[in-house]
Design a binder for these strands. Structure first.
Length: 718
RNA sequence: GCGCGCUUAGCUCAGCGGUAGAGCAACUCGUUUACACCGAGUGGGUCGGGGGUUCAACUCCCUCAGCGCGCACCA
């Protein structure tokens, strides 16, 4: 053995050896007889990385955890499938590419046209995909590349259309005119979950609209931070039990608001808080989600006064054509002049912004496609909300750590219909065609002339939601689907429990009439050593590839496993990775020492002779005990405890105690003693390698090859 | 407003009813069949504060505080 362990040489050679052997594919394992045909299946999908860039340290953590589960299952004889893939990440990818083009050429997507722009996005996505695949391999992930999928490839296109069609026919997907979240910057709708709230200071104005037609003041004062939207008010809502306003409820008024006539009705609604402001709320149905809902309850009309560019559309007014922020100032000034403002105060306010573009969200009424979550359907007449809940309460899905189950339920309780149409180009075009008043939804375009397909695309999470079965060939009834669905485990970050985990459960309940997976394991975020999120602007990014090149993928993986328990964030520093690199070196030297001390008289017969006396030795019993503990930890998803245990055993027991104790016999014992010592150490080393393999696949395989050429540790019995 | 998590050695964390643990860092010593990316050893904590349950609490319950997070509201 080489005195030094050459990480980069070994890691690239070993991965290629595994790939060539084909054992990442469970079919090959069955063919070559390393897995029984009727073995229990173990299946898991890789959360598909977005094709927006490159692998980051969070991906590396995810790969490490999943590869441990997969390699452990495979070594335990299970028919193990781990499917790789990538996500087209519609909005994220489109905005990234458009931004790059604007920067480089000063053109936007409209200058290029849909065809050309999409060509550019696809080229970028392809390049990004290739980089990511290489990086995933670099981390040692034992994925079945022969089954690789992409959320936007032809097979998944079929799945998306079949899913849309089925849900449309069930009445779960509908087209409706409702208030949606409009991203002014990105020029598209987004779902409730894609909103990020930013806390800012805002001014809360308490005021009266103005004069009534008889010249008296409007009788009720209201409060708002958005004076400019009040042109769109159609009601003033008060609490039903509020004595102050009871006399006005049901009355309608024609009021002059800053020179523009508006018509408002006073209504009573439980949702109004008596103690906030004046206890009266100006209802703007067209530009507030909550107000829209109030308007629905009271059959109020709505008046749209802001357009898609965030500009005021109030005809013949002070604010026509102005942006909302500017309009607000103009209105405030006008109200002051008219003496209508009663109070101005600074309050903290959460402003809704778009997750991807950072633009302000302007609620607007628009005709869009939705998934109905409160609509009973099918034979059971259950709603999607009910099904999503029961999948976890009694449907067999267990979420780890358990506290996320409550977070999941809480999210479902507050869930509104999911807006799935997007006004962007990159993604699955909505499989609906129009001809006059006719609408056709289908997997393929309708026959005949004159049909036009809906130009919008689907929320990227619509296609990711199908992932646990679309990767297995659905809607076709494939063997893979029969064998590997539902998935055994879904492993992902807790930050996408709503975006992704919940949507997969939703889709699976409708389309498969089953849970998508039995277990959800949520990992935390990888932060820097001070607990901050890693970001370019902070300059605290730790790149997994740099770490792998410097210290090895094995060390990088271990640094991401030990100290990281389910659902908890991990603080990572280069020092940690270096520490586990030292452990790799230790393993190498243990192996080297044992190999150097192989007695000349040692052979199979000597091994057999030693077997009986070894069987009763404490060291062997101890190894068995460690093995049982490690297995229990892995079975319980406590990878950090398993890793720590192994680290400690190998270094501080095997190396520091057992080897030290055997040195004397190896040096000047009898042949029989030497052989027994060697047999003992060899057995402890090989046993350790097996246990360590899921955690540190490269070095363990490399050392194994030295002791057992011609066999492969990755398919040895654990 | 509703809910969740964390608070244990200088740092990062494990332990979660029976006399305080690991890794890193610090300090001392040490090149002897691998490894200085090493070995042997040492120091260092009233387990966030207060109260309770118990023969016994870091571990269970209540309460307060600090930090962090999710959701909703945000007129």
């Amino acid at each position: 053995m080489e005195p030094r362990y050459d990480v980069n040489e070994v890691e690239s050679r070993i991965y290629k050896m595994w790939e060539d052997a084909g054992y990442f594919n469970p079919d090959t394992c069955v063919e070559k007889g390393v897995t029984a045909k009727d073995a229990e299946p173990f299946s898991i999908v890789l959360p598909p990385p977005n094709v927006t860039g490159t692998l980051h340290i969070g991906h590396a953590a995810m790969l490490a955890i999943e590869d441990i589960m997969v390699r452990y299952a495979r070594m335990n004889g299970k028919r193990t499938l781990w499917i790789p893939g990538a996500d087209h990440a519609a909005i994220a990818t489109q905005s990234k590419v458009e931004k790059d083009i604007v920067k480089a050429e000063g053109k936007n997507r409209h200058d290029l046209g849909r065809e050309e722009f999409l060509r550019r996005v696809r080229a970028f996505a392809q390049e990004s995909h290739d980089t990511i695949v290489n990086q995933v391999k670099r981390m040692g992930a034992s994925l079945d590349w022969s089954r690789e999928a992409y959320t936007l490839d032809d097979k998944r296109e079929v799945a998306v259309r079949a899913a849309f069609k089925k849900m449309y026919d069930l009445g779960l997907i509908y087209r409706g005119h409702r208030v949606i979240n409009w991203d002014v910057k990105g020029q598209t709708t987004i779902s409730d979950d894609e909103i990020v709230y930013e806390e800012r200071k805002a001014k809360l104005y308490t005021f009266r609209y103005g004069k009534l037609s008889d010249g008296t003041d409007f009788p009720i004062a209201i409060s708002t931070t958005r004076l400019e939207t009040k042109f769109g008010d159609t009601a003033v809502a008060v609490h039903p039990s509020d004595e102050r306003y009871k006399q006005f409820v049901g009355k309608e008024f024609d009021v002059n608001y800053c020179g523009t006539p508006i018509h408002v009705k006073v209504i009573a609604d439980e949702s109004v808080e008596k103690d906030f402001g004046t206890g009266a709320l100006g209802v703007t149905p067209a530009h507030s989600m909550i107000d829209w809902e109030i308007a629905q309850r009271h059959s109020l009309p709505f008046v749209q006064i802001i357009d898609e560019y965030g500009k005021m559309t109030v005809e013949n007014s002070l604010v026509h054509g102005k942006k909302t922020a500017e309009a607000r100032e103009i209105v405030a000034e006008e109200l002051r002049t008219r003496g209508l403002i009663i109070k101005e105060e600074e309050i903290p306010q959460n402003v809704a912004t778009a997750e991807r573009t950072g633009g302000i969200i302007e609620p607007l009424p628009k005709l869009q496609w939705f998934i109905a979550v409160n609509e009973p359907f099918g034979d059971a007449k259950k709603t999607l909300k009910e099904l999503m809940k029961s999948a976890v309460t009694d449907g067999g899905i267990k979420i780890l750590p358990e506290r996320f189950e409550r977070i999941y339920f809480n999210w479902i309780d507050n869930l509104r219909d999911w807006c799935i149409s997007r006004q962007i180009w990159f993604g699955h075009q909505i499989p609906v065609w129009y001809k006059g008043d006719e609408i056709f939804a289908g997997v393929a375009a309708p026959q005949g002339d004159g049909w036009t397909q809906d130009p919008d695309t689907l929320d990227t999470w619509f296609s990711s939601g199908l992932w646990p079965f679309s990767t297995l060939g659905w809607p076709e009834k494939t063997d893979d689907l029969k064998t590997y669905f539902p998935n055994s485990v879904l492993e992902t970050g807790y930050d996408i429990i709503f975006f992704w985990v919940a949507r997969m459960i939703l889709m699976s309940e409708v389309l498969m009439d089953d849970i998508p997976f039995r277990r959800v394991y949520l990992h935390g975020l990888v932060r820097d050593d001070k607990g901050r999120k890693m970001s370019k602007s902070l300059g605290n990014i730790i790149d997994p590839l740099t770490m792998a090149d410097k210290y090895g993928a094995d060390a990088t993986r271990l640094s991401l496993i030990i100290g990281a328990s389910a659902g908890n964030d991990l603080k990572l520093s280069e020092d940690r990775v270096r520490g586990y690199r030292n452990f790799s070196t230790k393993i190498w030297n243990i192996a080297r020492f044992i190999q150097m001390n192989k007695p000349e008289t040692f052979n199979d017969k000597a091994r057999a002779d030693a077997a009986a006396s070894l069987a009763v030795r404490e060291e062997i019993k101890e190894l068995a005990a460690i093995k049982a503990e490690v297995a229990k930890h892995i079975d319980d998803f406590e990878f950090h405890l398993a890793g720590e245990k192994l680290y400690h055993y190998v270094w501080h027991t095997l190396a520091d105690k057992v080897i030290e104790a055997e040195k004397k016999k190896l040096g000047d014992g009898t042949d029989a003693e030497k052989n027994e010592s060697y047999a003992l150490l060899e057995q402890l080393l090989l046993g350790s390698l097996k246990m360590l393999h899921p955690f540190m696949p490269f070095i363990t395989e490399e050392v194994w090859q030295i002791f057992h050429p011609g066999t492969m540790l990755m398919v040895e019995k654990w």
